[in-house]
Design a protein around this nucleic acid. Structure first.
Lengths: 229, 229
DNA sequence: TGGACGTTTCCATTATCATCGAAATGTGGA
DNA sequence: TCCACATTTCGATGATAATGGAAACGTCCA
């Protein structure tokens, strides 16, 4: 591996929105073809290729050629953990397994994944939205149906505004604790922001864990038909 | 609003080499006049001033005016820890000169990480405290056990006072030279302060490096069962 | 009071870099 | 063999931002 890594180059990976989106998408630990990553970040294949080459040079990602596809993945699992922590505000990375710890339980429950909600709560919300017919899964996309348009507008989201952003509008993101999908993309971010604004959730200090408030429990039961715990 | 303003803003700050140099210089936790930082980064005072203003605006550094000097320092310990985290990601910088490698050896050995000790000595201390059952790792937390309460009190630390501080009490921080954890948080700071008060360590001028005194070697052998070098 | 010095502000220049169109490369399938 | 498709390379563009010269500001000191 080229030790071309210096602090600034690592930091620039995270500070650029397109690269952050790509990294975020790679955080599921699986391989993704370059085109998917381009779509995920809302950029053209050329641009994605440019970014991926840069990341490969730094040894953050590795490539595997299969036929005419090139599959990218994060080179080391330990890097993946560190990236997720950095993306969603970081403390030092745990080297040992966190499986049984208290902190881990909290993270399983609800946490931030870069700019949107993850964990059990997020997975349940995504399920509920699909069951109600507001979202429809189409590959990696989560299509917003007509009833979904009304639902999100009623929920206080400005969908036209969210669509304008230079990033994928609505995607699913594999939740590494639940092994199910939750909602990501501009819509996931907007929904999360709205729920925070309504004080459904509160961030814990020094952690990406998220605490669900009493309002949150009530709201999730009323709006999504979800009862947690 | 961005829910992770900290990360992306800090990352974009560090992604510029000049600012990275400034921040790295500030990682010693001391105050530095603007001119020194300019020299450290190899840029003119105007440019340094421009960068420092930007960092101050984001709240990552704070200024203190003393006479015609303005002293800058990193505002929050958590930001400093995040930068260290990025350093551990980047890995050790390539050594160019003999003088640098000499300096590097010293930094590996013992250095300041903003307000607490880092480097081999700090990692060994953290290990020793866990082996003795005074600390117990729980995710990112380092829990102080009953025997630990007694140990630290006997060592001269006022734990109740440290707990009151508006920051994480006891946590681990990934050491970028050793790739192991050392003790951070209020407890790490307090322990470091106490050891300095006992003259176990002395800071080198103009550097993050820390020198271990004869008392320090003796004390660490007696209290922690550590023999360095 | 005047001059030296540390620092900042203003401004014009320059460098960097993400971005995408066009074209090239390489692979699979018909 | 030819075409479709995924991806990369090349080249140009435009936006952003770093940079340092000139000058102003404040503070210290003689």
């Amino acid at each position: 591996m080229s030790l071309n890594r210096n602090v600034s180059s690592i930091a620039s990976l995270i500070s650029d929105p397109s690269r952050a989106a790509i990294l975020l998408h790679l955080l599921d630990g699986r391989c993704h073809p370059a085109g998917d990553l381009a779509a995920a970040a809302g950029i053209t294949p050329q641009t994605a290729s440019f970014h991926l080459a840069k990341m490969a040079e730094l040894g953050i990602v590795t490539v595997e050629k299969h036929g005419r596809h090139r599959y990218y993945r994060i080179a080391q699992a330990s890097d993946a953990e560190m990236i997720e922590q950095l993306l969603s505000f970081a403390g030092p990375a745990p080297v040992v397994s966190l499986r049984q710890s208290d902190q881990m339980k909290k993270l399983r429950h609800a946490r931030m994944c870069y700019d949107h909600l993850a964990g059990e709560a997020a997975v349940r919300i995504a399920e509920s939205l699909q069951r109600a017919g507001h979202l429809q899964k189409d590959g990696l996309q989560l299509h917003v149906t007509a009833s979904g348009e009304r639902f999100f507008a009623d929920f206080g989201l400005d969908l036209p505004q969210l669509r304008k952003k230079r990033r994928a509008f609505s995607r699913c993101c594999l939740d590494w604790t639940e092994r199910e999908h939750h909602l990501a993309g501009a819509l996931g971010q907007g929904l999360t922001e709205r729920m925070f604004a309504m004080d459904w959730f509160r961030r814990e200090e020094q952690s990406r864990a998220v605490r669900i408030t009493q309002e949150g429990r009530q709201g999730m039961a009323e709006r999504f038909g979800i009862r947690l715990d």
